[in-house]
Design a binder for these strands. Sequence first.
DNA 1: GTGATAAATTTCGTGTACGAAATATTACTT
DNA 2: AAGTAATATTTCGTACACGAAATTTATCAC
Lengths: 142, 142
Amino acid sequence: MNKSLHIRDLLKRLNKTFGTMATKELSQYGVTVPQLMVIREIHPDPKTIGQISKAVDLSYSTVSGIIDRLEREQLVERVRDENDRRVVWIRKTPKISELFAKVDFFSENFYKRIFHGFSDEDLDIIIQSMETLIVKLEERES
Amino acid sequence: MNKSLHIRDLLKRLNKTFGTMATKELSQYGVTVPQLMVIREIHPDPKTIGQISKAVDLSYSTVSGIIDRLEREQLVERVRDENDRRVVWIRKTPKISELFAKVDFFSENFYKRIFHGFSDEDLDIIIQSMETLIVKLEERES
DNA sequence: GTGATAAATTTCGTGTACGAAATATTACTT
DNA sequence: AAGTAATATTTCGTACACGAAATTTATCAC
């Protein structure tokens, strides 16, 4: 069997499994994984769409859409910059704090629970492998 | 820094980088990654939606949508089973063969090119790490 | 044989995710 | 100061991706 394809396949499955688990746990709080990623970025201080996009590595348009839905739920709000009116600041609302307490707990424990049973050395090997891979990959991307 | 989170992050980045690269290369042939995954499944012999879904690990509805678009491009066609009319067979069309030649070439070389420079031992370590991870993860999923 | 159940697929609604085009605003150039 | 270029964001069109509900057909129980 082709090892490269195998690696690609494992990567996909791992990613999907992680996503599914996190999504399932988060659903009780009424937020999704990308929404949580964005929320984390604007806590406690506001950020612009551009800053958020860079931080979470998603396109402007994707982040804009995510914020549409967060705003609809009144978890964040858009505030125009007074000095440079092109800029939009994304600011948390009061409503978000209760969510935060719960979700902080969630993220604290989620990965710890998942990786329970792996030794520190195991984790280091995994990290090392993937870092080598991503370095080569990203230098090849250009 | 939290190692679990780091691993999750690397996983995401790797997956995304792979996807972006493959998408870019495939765009010249007018197909997407999921479309190619499905096409591979029905070559040379037809499969049902159910079989395809299981093989590519996507939901029925997702596969149904992908096939809608492949059918629109006349790359595949839906054929009702004569004996059990609930079943729909997805069959390749003549138009697909030229695509196949090019895309076969693509897949032959894509991963080899990416993993060029990694020794067999390197790959084994990566595979080993990820397999350990996915086993624990998937047993935890239940 | 008829009604309930089961199985295979599609449809629908929601939420990503992207790039290209559009919009709004600011900065720059002359 | 007018016109152009640059910047920040949104809108639009396309393609996944899922689960729940709907649809169609087959099977099973009686």
